[in-house]
């Protein structure tokens, strides 16, 4: 099977049953994407496929050939940490750090969704052209990423700083 991961083409012979998550972790030595439930219920495995956030644990790898996959290992810009990574550190947006890569990848995908006007469950006016990412919007949109340590406040602060206040 052929994949494009973090800009690199890779060819690997894997079992048809292999999930995108296990492909990354067990076959490509990319351990940044985490396994928290393997059932689509925690968000720790979130990666970007063509810029859209998905759960790599529910994705059969075979389905994602030819898609551009970006993991936490691939979000740095010019060797520098992504501004959101720096903001997570500054705002203490994690404790154990296990859900963190998923939170960060999810937030990047989420911000792109909001930027193009994607409404959420919290959006009052479905017809609105623009989305204002207030804290309620961020919390609803990030609810697919569970943090059992409870770093939610710091995570929302970090996201707000990078994707809301910067706008």
């Amino acid at each position: 099977m052929r994949f494009l991961i973090n800009g690199q083409p890779v060819e690997v012979d894997v079992d048809m049953r292999t999930s995108l998550l296990d492909l990354l972790r067990d076959h490509l030595n990319l351990h940044g994407s985490k396994k928290g439930c393997n059932q689509g219920a925690c968000g720790a495995c979130t990666v970007l496929a063509d810029g859209e956030r998905i759960l790599s644990c529910l994705a059969l790898a075979v389905q994602y050939q030819g898609r551009e996959i970006t993991t936490i290992e691939g979000i740095a810009e010019d060797g520098q940490m992504h501004p959101l990574q720096r903001a997570f550190i500054e705002h203490d947006g994690f404790q154990c750090g296990y859900c963190t890569p998923g939170q960060i990848c999810s937030a990047i995908g989420m911000a792109a969704e909001a930027k193009r006007g994607m409404p959420s469950h919290m959006t009052r006016d479905l017809g609105a052209e623009f989305i204002t990412l207030d804290r309620h919007e961020v919390r609803e949109r990030m609810s697919g990423n569970i943090c059992r340590c409870g770093a939610y406040n710091g995570i929302v602060n970090a996201i707000s700083e990078v994707f809301v206040e910067a706008e």
């Binding site: 968000g43 956030r53 759960l55 994705a59 995908g109 989420m110 959420s120 479905l126 697919g144 990423n145």
Partner: peptide
């Protein structure tokens, strides 16, 4: 709008993208 609302009430952003 009911369809948009129902979809947005379901699952998570990641799952809705899949």
């Amino acid at each position: 709008p009911v369809l948009s609302r129902a979809l947005l009430a379901g699952a998570s952003g990641q799952i809705r993208n899949m």
